[in-house]
Design a protein around this nucleic acid. Sequence first.
DNA 1: CAGTGGTCTAGACCACTGT
DNA 2: CAGTGGTCTAGACCACTGG
Lengths: 243, 243
Amino acid sequence: MFRQIADALREAIDKGRYREGDKLPSETDLVDHFGVSRMTVRNALSLLQQEGLAVSEHGKGVFVRPRPPVRRLASDRFARRHRDQGKAAFTVEAEAAGSRPEVDSLEVKEERPSQDISARLGSPRKVLARRRRYLLDGRPVEFATSYLPLDLARNTPIAQPNPGPGGIYARLEEMGHRLDHFDEEIRARMPSPAEVRTLQLASGVPVIHLVRTAYDSEGRPVEVCDTVMAADAYVLAYQLPAN
Amino acid sequence: MFRQIADALREAIDKGRYREGDKLPSETDLVDHFGVSRMTVRNALSLLQQEGLAVSEHGKGVFVRPRPPVRRLASDRFARRHRDQGKAAFTVEAEAAGSRPEVDSLEVKEERPSQDISARLGSPRKVLARRRRYLLDGRPVEFATSYLPLDLARNTPIAQPNPGPGGIYARLEEMGHRLDHFDEEIRARMPSPAEVRTLQLASGVPVIHLVRTAYDSEGRPVEVCDTVMAADAYVLAYQLPAN
DNA sequence: CAGTGGTCTAGACCACTGT
DNA sequence: CAGTGGTCTAGACCACTGG
């Protein structure tokens, strides 16, 4: 029964009878309309939320989930030519798209690396960790941590909260680590409770987990950036040569 | 209360007191242990399932979700050098990884393209659609549809269920469409009910939606491949040049 | 068969929202 | 304040699993 109710609502949403942001019938309405108990109705609404089709707001109602504008990450976003500006890439790009960018909870620390990070960076004893959260129009969309071998980053502008124009990649190149290429690994999964909090994720929204490793021209890994993104806010775009 | 129960179980899982595939305490056990009603316990277990930490099996119990082996898709997987074999790339690679590959529900049809596909392919009136499902060790992991402009694919080996060694990309190149590059777009979201069925997805498992467009050396889009993957079965890997 | 999870009921009280 | 969703109870019957 609760599946039938969910199907009915899903179809109504698909057919446009309810649009993004519209309020669905209240639980009481559905109880009356379908002649079932409230738990059954709640079960149906819960299904739609798990599918990412609806969000509930306490005291207000259940709404068709609005599709936020997505941020497109192009595969050339770290190309050197995009780096000679005074502002961070995120800021430039967000303003170009007409959004209000913010960077938040910036934290720079020396740490002992996790096993995974350590392996990717060639087993340094300690690393510099740069954490920050990105927001668009007040909405958190991404939480990222950069790790650099401490022997490379200590007492450099990279250890400062604001590393200066062009970001840490520009600083690395100034320090003689000409960047050669980046490896990116992409996974998708449901968020942990902590991630739900920091990214203010609605239920039914997965995260994209991206781990990028930057290599210098000698093949040494110089940075690993671990990024968790709200999946409904991003499209990742890559261009691959046919050979 | 149900959050506390979920927290307790989550912590026990994180700390390894329950391992992958282990059975969690039954609902009755939890009711007795925490002194709450069954709905409260079910609420807690449902949370863990939404997080992708647990799966329930009717009549058996609730189990810590096993992490299946992931398939790594490298960004050079369509490089020409990987194409001169007799078998499909999926098959070769799966066997190398020690898995048993299968391809399933193969279907080749002429269709009118959706608006999105049409735009990507330069607005052909009709397209050839090649649908197929991929399985590893009996488990569905990916459902893919390739679309090609019909004027390009009609009456060619591409319109056959088995297009021959090297797949449709090899055939396209034989037909004079030398491939130049691919664009890939990646999104993650929760699956539709239909996708849950065809990929046999557990709750709490998102899908990765990948749309790849192949361009020939004249810049013409010659194929769009729309792929939906079980997110717990894949890591996508890309290599980006620093310039 | 006993034990498990799946569904549903009927009712209660609470917390949040907007008027 | 009325209307909304959030949580919880106590109980019932069902469907599936395994011995």
